[in-house]
């Protein structure tokens, strides 16, 4: 091999280098041209980028899957970036078409979007019934009021059950809840505790840990999304909740959350960008999404509270207004 380095091998090597160089340049250049856009025929095609809350993710993902069954050429990508991460990194800079959120958009996020001429349209599409649960061995409590919940969860002062109610056992509270960064935590802090939340509790990103914790200790208590409760009804005992002392306590169920009798119902939103709705695939997807927000499978398969007909109508009006402009 080494003896003819300067002979004809040199030519073939140059050929090789020229060839691979050309191929590499061309490979990139060549393929960038076959990019997306509305292509052949009248079949809908294109991209829809959905980011945002991991709570809304299961609904959006299911919607994407069903939509793509009808429109196999539309690439709907769904990514749980978190409500804030989605607004900050993707939606407001104009790189996403829809952002899911488990809370209302914040003022600074609106400003950020406005800086980039992105105008989010708020659509309340479903609800999550937060469930407060205790160990199945717990026989002293069946229902609680917001006031009692706030005593337990509002700050670190309560350490035993009897601190909250003298009738309850003098045993240490073992508390499990969602992670501080989650929308569930924010909502609970805001709507139940009145703006504060204790720091001494087992915060976890995985609701399975909460279920396990409740199973393992009779003095444990925790709160989490209804979807998890519906899959683990035999492992934990859910508490009935009353907003204030005089109200009738109501057991968590999607029906109760939907008609407003269960007070721990948290709204979920999607925010399509007004500009993105001008693109047909995005418009069609959002339309499909809204039409299906009242579908039964949202309750049966995802475990969330479906939208009622009024919400669907209101959202559709918003959509038509935005697209009509």
């Amino acid at each position: 091999m080494a003896d003819n380095q300067f002979g004809r091998d040199a030519v073939s090597r140059r050929k090789f280098i020229a060839g691979t160089g050309a191929v590499s340049v061309a490979a990139i250049a060549g393929c960038s041209e076959t990019s997306d856009g509305n292509g052949n025929g009248d079949e809908l095609s294109g991209e829809v980028i959905v980011k945002g809350s991991s709570t809304v993710f299961p609904i959006s993902d299911e919607m994407a899957q069903r939509f793509m069954d009808d429109h196999p050429k539309v690439n709907v990508t769904v990514d749980p970036t978190g409500s804030g991460g989605g607004f900050e990194n993707h939606f407001c800079p104009g790189n996403a078409d829809i952002n899911g959120a488990s809370r209302l958009i914040k003022e600074e996020e609106k400003n950020h979007c406005a800086e980039n001429d992105v105008s989010p349209i708020e659509m309340h599409i479903a609800g999550d019934a937060l469930t407060v649960a205790v160990s199945p061995e717990n026989d002293w409590v069946d229902s609680m009021t917001f006031d009692e919940l706030a005593q337990i969860w509002g700050d670190d002062s309560a350490t035993t059950w009897s601190d909250v109610n003298p009738d309850w056992p003098d045993e240490e509270l073992k508390l499990y809840g969602p992670d501080t960064t989650s929308g569930t935590y924010d909502w609970f802090t805001e709507n139940v505790n009145g703006g504060t939340h204790r720091t001494e509790y087992e915060g976890t990103e995985d609701d399975n840990t909460i279920i396990q914790g409740l199973e393992n200790s009779p003095y444990a208590m925790g709160y989490f999304g209804y979807a998890y409760y519906s899959e683990n009804k035999d492992r934990v005992k859910a508490l009935e909740i009353a907003e204030s002392e005089g109200d009738d306590p109501s057991a968590p169920s999607l029906q109760a959350a939907s008609d407003g009798t269960y007070p721990l119902a948290r709204p979920l939103f999607i925010y399509p960008a007004e500009g993105a709705l001008e693109r047909e695939p995005v418009y069609e997807f959002v339309k499909f999404y809204l039409e299906n927000t009242s579908a039964d499978w949202i309750a049966d398969e995802v475990g969330y509270v479906p939208a009622n007909q009024d919400m669907v109508d209101e959202n559709m009006t918003k959509l038509e207004n935005a697209a009509g402009e």
Partner: peptide
């Protein structure tokens, strides 16, 4: 990793 995948709003100290 958590900071890019949470419900925190961007532009905050947490982010």
């Amino acid at each position: 990793v958590q900071a890019v995948t949470t419900d925190l709003s961007g532009g905050t100290a947490g982010y």
